[in-house]
Amino acid sequence: MTPIFEMVIGTLTYVIIIMITVIGNLLVVFSVFSYRPLNKVQNYFLVSLAVSDLTVALIVMPLHVIKFLSS
């Protein structure tokens, strides 16, 4: 395999993982705040976890993709 092919496949894989992570965690946050029966104190811990995971997906993972592309 050529290095360019590996870079394209690797980058697409990272981007897909980032997109799935962002969409999934946004769905968790929106569902807890919009669906009344889920609006309980216990579910705010899930929202906190989803927000921290969302932060990792938006800040740390793109930096990893940049590092992957520069190597």
Rank of each mutant, 00 (worst) to 15 (best):
M1N: 11
M1Y: 05
P3S: 08
P3D: 03
I4A: 11
I4P: 00
I4C: 03
F5W: 12
E6N: 15
M7C: 08
M7A: 13
V8A: 06
I9V: 10
T11M: 01
T11N: 03
T13I: 02
T13D: 01
T13Y: 02
Y14A: 11
Y14T: 00
Y14W: 05
Y14P: 00
V15L: 15
V15C: 08
I16M: 11
I17R: 03
I17N: 04
M19Q: 14
M19E: 08
I20E: 04
I20D: 01
T21Q: 07
T21M: 15
I23V: 15
I23H: 05
I23E: 06
I23A: 12
I23C: 05
N25E: 03
L26E: 05
L26Y: 07
L26F: 09
V28N: 04
V28W: 05
V29M: 11
V29L: 08
F30V: 08
F30M: 12
V32C: 05
V32H: 03
F33T: 02
F33W: 08
S34M: 14
Y35C: 09
R36Q: 15
R36K: 15
P37Y: 02
N39M: 10
K40W: 00
K40D: 01
K40G: 01
V41T: 07
V41A: 13
Q42D: 07
Q42W: 05
N43C: 06
Y44G: 03
F45E: 08
L46W: 10
L46N: 12
L46Y: 09
L46Q: 10
V47L: 05
V47R: 09
S48G: 15
S48Q: 09
L49W: 06
A50W: 00
S52K: 15
D53V: 06
L54I: 01
L54N: 04
T55C: 11
T55H: 11
A57G: 14
A57K: 10
I59N: 09
I59V: 13
V60W: 09
M61E: 10
H64F: 13
H64Y: 09
H64Q: 13
V65Y: 01
V65I: 14
I66L: 12
F68V: 00
L69D: 00
L69A: 04
L69M: 12
S70V: 14
S70P: 00
S70G: 03
S71N: 15
S71Y: 02
S71Q: 12
